[in-house]
Design a protein around this nucleic acid. Structure first.
Lengths: 193, 193
DNA sequence: ACCTGAACACCGTTCAAGT
DNA sequence: ACCTGAACACCGTTCAAGT
């Protein structure tokens, strides 16, 4: 066929990401391949490498999208309540299971450099959580507050993992909402006691 | 070369698992391949399929080993204290990072059937945790106790994930011990209040 | 400048053929 | 009965050659 010029760099970029995101959502990140993406958009594999560094680079851009929609989901809940944020987070992790999986479980190569725009997205996510806990800062030291935010966040994340996969409890899958209530109620009670 | 008979079925089985475990520990599960294992033990790939169903089957057996050594590690700590169990768990996840990763992060195919002997190992792991929290049963209902065990366990797991990878906090990696103290102290205080 | 097509170095899995 | 070797259907990545 040879050159096309049918699409600009930006068009190609979003065609690639759209195709990849489609495979991600329907089949999971394990099934994403450069060749499959290329076929979907009607180009050969080589073309992907004009737009992205490699497959991991594409994964990073997919994760950026997922972060954006996760932030959007959380923002649409009651951002003043840590519990409603946690519910929204669980809901997102269930509804966008494959995307969430790539975001939090894919192990990037240690050498992989993340682009500058990535970390701010993560920070704004943590900012939403921190904001819902700002009453703490009246009761605890700034260090304690910061640490507590990390504790709550990672605990909620742990509960998501546990309830989304059957890793440890093949039997008796507990309702994640109930686990989150249990966690947050008791933890905050202890912290503010 | 043709047939060897140099090794029994059981010998072959442990040769394969040893080779696979070696790759797992040094390079991570992503780098395990049937061809690499075969080369390491001096057989061709086909031989692996006389002993194991497929690569996932080998992974399950690797996870069984990891579960055993995790259980051993936890048993050697002060099993009456949830905090020392949590410390031991964090330590294990750091020292055996790649094995821990395969155990908790690899996504097996939904169709994959786990062998009968697998779940009892998981149960005995949870049993150790449950045992360290048995004072709770005096204070809470059995259901509440069970749920609280899951909450604590998954929260500790979440803290491990957070501190082992740089997923959310590229900046300011908190000491996991301090996070665990924070979690358990406050959570139990609230629960027993 | 952009894209192709073929190549390179890998995969997991199967199975007829050999001993 | 056990193992090989080749085949099949895939991978990610690179790059000379075409337009």
């Amino acid at each position: 066929m040879a050159r096309r010029g049918d699409h600009t760099f930006e068009e190609l970029s979003s065609m690639i990401l759209n195709a990849a995101y489609e495979i991600l959502e329907t089949e999971g990140f394990q099934k994403i391949s450069t060749r499959k993406i290329a076929t979907k958009i009607g180009y050969t594999v080589g073309t992907l490498y004009n737009v992205f560094q490699n497959l991991e680079d594409i994964f990073i851009h997919l994760n950026a999208r997922t972060l954006d929609s996760l932030i959007k989901s959380l923002s649409e809940s009651d951002v003043t309540s840590i519990k409603s944020l946690a519910y929204a987070y669980v809901k997102f992790s269930q509804e966008s299971f494959n995307a969430w999986s790539l975001l939090f479980e894919y192990q990037f190569d240690d050498k992989t450099q993340f682009p500058r725009w990535y970390q701010p997205k993560v920070d704004s996510l943590l900012g939403i959580v921190a904001n819902s806990l700002k009453d703490l800062s009246g009761k605890c030291s700034p260090e304690k507050t910061k640490e507590s935010i990390i504790v709550i966040w990672s605990s909620i994340h742990g509960i998501c993992i546990l309830s989304n996969r059957g890793k440890l409890n093949k039997t008796g899958a507990s309702d994640p909402k109930s686990l989150i209530d249990n966690l947050i109620d008791n933890y905050l009670k202890g912290l503010l006691a």
